[in-house]
Design a protein around this nucleic acid. Sequence first.
RNA 1: GGUACCAUAGCUCAGUUGGUAGAGCAACGGACUGAAAAUCCGUGUGUCCCUGGUUCAAUUCCAGGUGGUACCA
Length: 302
Amino acid sequence: MQKYLIILTGPTGIGKTRTGLALAKYFNTEIVSSDSRQIYKELNIGTAVPDKVELTEIKHHLIQNHSIYENFNVSKFENEALSTINSLFFHHNLVLLVGGSMLYINAICNGIDNMPDADPEIRDMLKVKLESEGLESLRFQLKKIDPDYYNTVDLKNTNRIIHALEISLMTGNPYSTYLTKSKKTRPFTIIKIGLNCERTELHNRINTRVDNMINAGLEDEARKLHHLKHLNAMNTVGYRELFAFFDNEISREKAIELIKRNTRRYARKQLTWFRNDEEMNWFEYDQTKEIITFIENQIIEK
RNA sequence: GGUACCAUAGCUCAGUUGGUAGAGCAACGGACUGAAAAUCCGUGUGUCCCUGGUUCAAUUCCAGGUGGUACCA
């Protein structure tokens, strides 16, 4: 029996949760999340996780099942999401993957190369070096260790340079030797559904949603997490702007304004990524009926 | 109703001694292999309020109109 993974995605605030629930009910199946922030159990309001009613109506996976104290990453996501999806196929012919994290979705569709997780000590060491000697020094080191990657990487992107160095130093092999550029094959058929709407309306939806989050108590939630702002997981829109307010760097009003702006920018970045995906089938956010028809036609054809 | 001041990018405003204009913010485009809601790169998007006049040339000067603000009635 052919298995289908329906990937439902789109910019933040477009209504993926709602449409996902409707599809899950219709196809009598379960939802796997592909959201890099909803995966954390400590985050609620700011990540717009499905509420308790929604989570009991339909079984969700990879929602709030990890801690912000862990060093979660895309590779762990790939492994965990794939094994979850494959076990769901034991009882379902169709499974939903719902979320907007582009790289995570890409890892499910195309896979990601195998390499070890970065050693936090080596990363810290490189950060110290960055502080004391500057980015130029890290570039110089990368040029010696991995000239191939040095020639292709964006040399202004500190994160990428640090990552290439930490993997190279840890393993003794140049980072670029781990990049096979091969696409992994999956034992299921993928159908990609993208939700969208006119940009102005998307901005309105986002602005309203941020106001709703503030009214729902986002400030209190963020205040409790303030002392954890150094964690990777807390470098998140909706929290970091409030942290800046708590640290007296900006006003409360300014923080809310920045949350809206940064959410809008995130949505644009998502659209940039998804736009280039030729496999994406685009729908307006309220076309649930059309989406169901589309999926059914796809399945019948195969 | 009268007088003064203002009208330039989505917003706040510069500016052009007359040669079709530029800052900040916002916005937009792009890259993307273990931090990805991350990180990085790039782009002015304009009937200079409207209609006449002067001029080789008007967003700029002049007149009128329209809209706005302030003050006086």
